[in-house]
Design a protein around this nucleic acid. Sequence first.
RNA 1: GGGCCCGUAGCUUAGCCAGGUGGAGCGCUCGGCUGAUAACCGAGAGGUCUUGCGUUCAAAUCGCAACGGGCCCA
Length: 1064
Amino acid sequence: MLYRITTLDSLEIIYMLKEASQYDAKVVEQNIQKFWDEIDAYSRVRELRKNGKKFFFVDGPPYTTGRIHLGTAWNKIIKDSVLRYRSMSGYHILERAGWDMHGLPIEVKVEEVLGFKSKKDIETYGVGNFVAKCKEFALSHRDEMTVQFRNLGIWLNWKEPYMTLRDEYIEAAWWTLKQAHEKKLLEKGLRVVNWCPRCETAIADSEVEYADETDPSVYIKFPVKGEENTYIVIWTTTPWTIPANIAVAVHPSFEYVKVRVKKDGKEEILIMAEQLMKNVLKQGRYKDHEVLEIMLGEDLRIEYEAPLGEKVPLQKEFHHNVYLADFVTAENTGCVHIAPGHGIDDFELGMKNKLPIFCPVGPDGRYTEEAGDYKGMHVREANKVVLDDLTENGLLLASGKISHRYGHCWRCKTSIIYLATEQWFLRVTDIKEQMLSEIEKVKWYPEWAGSARFADWVTGSRDWCISRQRYWGIPIPVWVCGSCGETEVMGTRHELEKRSGVSKLPDLHRPNVDNIHIKCKCGGQMSRVPDVFDVWFDSAVASWATLNFPHDEKALKDWWPADFITEGHDQTRGWFYSQLGASMIAFGKAPYKSVLMHGFTLDTEGKKMSKSLGNVVSPEEVIAKFGAESLRLYVLSQNAPWDDLKFSWDEVGNVHRMLNILWNVYRFPLPYMVLDKFNPLEINGTPAALRLEDRWLLSRIQSLIKQVDAAMLEYNLHKATRPISEFILEDLSRWYIQLIRPRTWRESNDPDKLAAYYTLYEVLVTLTKLIAPFAPHISEEMYQNLVRNVDPEAPQSVHMCNRAVPREDFIDTELEKQMNIIREIVEASSNARQKLKRKLRWPVKKIVVAPKKEDVVAAVRNLEEVLKEQTNAKEIVLLSPGETWEQLGVEVLPVHATLGPAFKKEAGRVLAELKNADGKAIRKAITENGSFNLKEWTLTADMVTFKDSIPQEIAQAGFSTGDVYVDTELTREIECEGYAREVIRRLQDMRKELDLAVEEEINAVVEIKDERVLELVSGSKDFISGEVRAKSMVIGSGIEAEGDLVKDWDVEDVKMKMGIVRIK
RNA sequence: GGGCCCGUAGCUUAGCCAGGUGGAGCGCUCGGCUGAUAACCGAGAGGUCUUGCGUUCAAAUCGCAACGGGCCCA
């Protein structure tokens, strides 16, 4: 990596700058990553800061599914940049890469590989074998993903990551559950849960994925008891739940009607919400109707018969009544079918009114014995059968289809059902208030992520169902006594071994812990609850599991809680929440002090990237095309972190272009510096010969450092990185490099040139440190050459350096302002030149600056040389603010509306005279007296307006605080120089074509037929020879141009022929 | 249906918190430069600031509503 040259005679290592080739991101990145590995840069950087202030970061663990996507890349890039910045700021950082490795997603993948269809297949295969496969899958995918992250230049502790499948990690989860048990926040209970009938397990709210689905939309009549032909009408999309119907809910303050209707000659009385009657009658195709009675929901006392009592005998034992509920909405019929075993609201209504929680469906999605005739049928097939049965009973009022959002299992995509089952819960609702007050103590970026979004989610959260009836997960460490029902929670492996007498467990997964029994106080035998944890509980304990708590209590004391975490906004309901919940249970406080919530990556249209839409862009594709550095800076600078990022190849390309320019800026001075054997170590202090433009650049970068620091304080990564790009493009490349070109091209080693070297060197080195957190590769590459190649004592890596700190002695805000004005004037003058098509290569006689403000005067005075050079002007004329340039004429414009009425018939003559009048004199008179005399007439101020008239050879352009006039009049001197520069430009072009080195000399012949131009050019022979390094030069008309390269040129319609010869 | 966020030139965006003549980059058109050169620079065209209503002397900016997009929830 180091550019060291070993000289043969001395065998000494000579440290010196080396030239650089063109920017190839892939080469740079691969070399740098290899270099880091070789010197173990990551570990050494952490070691270097071990006495610094502690900064604890917890990596939100990605799920080990195999490939990372753009969003995961963005997430890790933010983390890496923040941590690198903190590290360079002196912080002692603790962070371990994390991996989320348990749970259904992996089980489902492994089931796919093994061709399994149900839990029975797994049981037959053997739980132990299955778990081993899952483990293998998780570990191999972790390895693949690690490589992908490292290719992005992400520095996390990859050697000692925290993994949820490790025993230490499992113990952290166990310990946490024990806390919940001791604080009476763990409970077992009957609850309606989201259930996946394929995976045969409860799934968390957060595991439910909503997607459009077409379902039946049916209106059903429930026969009212004791009233002939009278029915209460309900609506449902899940006919399969009708066999479990227990009640109907109505809204207490809605009005309900009893209405007599007729269809096919038959009369019926229907009950429904008044405002929805029209809809229901239309659905049922009833023609006539007669409202018999209107009453409030709260007055509706009705008992009805089970609609499928014949098929489900158990139903005959229940009473079916109408109950009041606020959740009833004015949609469909206003009467809601209630099956407490199959709906969340239903369940709660059932509990409140002590209704039976009737759930005749088993874990496999098939009806149980309780469902009578339906026993054994899968609910998926039941909809049609139930509807047929209802039709037969004459209870189906209408039947159609509806497309709506419905929940699906997030992994296998099966439609979920709701089942009342026995599950284990964390009573999060009991500690909700404390959670909300903890949220306020956390610093959120942006602020609304906590105060609005997260607080809102926590407010609406329910108790957390943590049990899953699966295999690959952390076993729930709860043992229940078969005799007395007592429960005990094992907090550690040691505790389990001690209580059970079993030792040397191979690991803490199923099935190893399944058949361990514990003796109960009552003498009975305790067995483990067969469930595993919801996988969200795994990552919930990450902040202390990563510290090896409960085994390492000191680490917890030293580091916990986390100083910072950052994840996408989907984690509001996920990791932000699960961590807070678990931490409140375990320690009574939030596990993090600050949270940066970032956005999602979307496609160019602003749509989600998904495989089915085919719009997915992978990080690898981007790296292949532009390199990791471009991707890094793109995601950091494109958006505010919390906004969603619409991916755009063009914009990544722009970032790459910026990096290429940075590289060219870095590369540009190297050949000169190498040639001059420039050694920055030999410069002590600041050179006295600094020009104003040098001081300006040195000041600019200090201001830039301040800007970056201010932005990073608030994790505004976009506001940190954008000014850096702007500095590189505007200040460095487009301005400073252009300013110093003539100086670097100078032969001698004069102080003026050294000052430019010094400035550029100082700024580039500072810049490498400034951009290192965001662009770790290119900065390292530049650093290795600029610093390490000249100073073996310097830190070995740029990432071992201290953060760039602004040097107050370099700051000169006044100069920065003045330079901005000069740049504006230069721009205006090139604008003006363009109007008269005068190339920049041709000097102009003079440039007149007409300022509107005093500070322009100061700027022009101070930076006149810069202005002169950049505008290629022989002279700068500076006027006072408000002064009009005397060479401007004044044109008098008559105001017809006032002249006409004032002079009537004579107006025509007045106008004619005005045309020939002396504008300047008239304006002077008007300004001084308010009127003037023209022949026999007196004209007043309202009769004329004035306009500056610009002479033909003058070009004008404005800037924000003034005007610029460019005098393009050609003189002999200017033509001489103009043509000379045309010739130089073409000879340089030919040198380039011959691929000559900078210092190589040539002989040149220039043939010009035009006598006048020949004479002009001949006068500049010495000047031309010097510029193109010609040892001999012949300029003439009757000569033959010859050499290694001969070319014909057309210079402003003048034919020239040039030949050059390389001098060996 | 609810919560939060976003909507500015063909594209990507700054400005919004703290109201006062909307700035960039890309692309396009025209021009310039030429020892950073498979680069670079300038100019021009391009805007109902999603829409509507309101507050105000004044609204891209503040408020309300609608529409479109995202995340989360029902």
